[in-house]
Simulated scan of single mutants.
Amino acid sequence: MDKNKQGIEFLQQGKIEKALELFTEAIEENPQDAIGYVNFANVLVSVGENERAETFLKRAIQLDDKAAAAYYSYGNLLFNKEKYNQAASFFEKAIQNGMNSNDGYYMLGMCFVHLGRNELALPYLMRSVELDETDNEARFQYALALAQSEAYSEAISHLEKVVKLDPQHADALYNLSVAYAMTDEQPHKVLQLLNKALEIQPDHLLALNVKKVIEQEFQK
């Protein structure tokens, strides 16, 4: 078996030392192959050695400036450092160089979410959901972006799918209640959703606050 593939299997099993050993051998045997450096960097990131990881990712890009995996990993590293502008640039390069999985589009969309650029986040989050309809977190974030754009009917449609896949998703239930409230849904429906959210997460402050406001309206 290819040492890079075998190393990835060890990494997925949590066998960090074994993975590092195989990735080191892969680099020694093929020092001009960027993928070995990317894999080694990913292990370093997993154990919190970000500076060393950055060195390996820079080397990977020097060897192959079209290595989508290197740009994606570098983007993740920068995202975790909250350097969202820089991270977005690397995710864009990953996509430009052939990364067509939902992960790249999702992470690029989330960069723009953190930068407060909802209008830029929307198309990437939408594409992420199109590429993998089972990714519930991507769908949830896309729904939030839709709601932020006041596209409440579309947001409701996606939030309902999120809740169908994960009935215990308190945040989705809360945001669904708000979206219903914004479309003039009956207050009892909104309360029903808020109560479900609070059953799952009793300390959900946003849900508690909205519920209090609605109940006060009922008492008038």
Rank of each mutant, 00 (worst) to 15 (best):
K93S: 06
K93G: 00
A94F: 02
Q96F: 02
N97G: 03
G98R: 05
N100Y: 05
N100Q: 15
N102K: 01
G104R: 01
Y105L: 01
Y106E: 02
M107T: 05
L108N: 01
G109T: 01
G109K: 00
G109C: 04
C111A: 02
F112H: 10
F112T: 00
H114G: 04
L115I: 07
R117Y: 11
R117S: 15
N118K: 12
E119R: 10
L120K: 15
L120Q: 15
L122W: 06
L122F: 11
P123S: 02
M126A: 13
R127V: 03
S128F: 04
S128P: 04
V129M: 02
D132V: 03
D135E: 02
A138Q: 02
A138L: 01
A138M: 00
R139N: 03
F140D: 07
Y142K: 09
A143T: 09
L144M: 11
L146Q: 12
L146R: 06
S149H: 10
S149K: 12
E150M: 11
Y152F: 14
A155F: 08
I156S: 11
H158P: 04
L159N: 13
E160V: 09
K161G: 02
K161W: 05
V162E: 07
Q168Y: 14
H169N: 15
N175E: 12
D184N: 13
D184A: 11
E185H: 13
E185W: 07
P187K: 03
V190T: 14
Q192E: 14
Q192I: 08
L193N: 05
N195M: 10
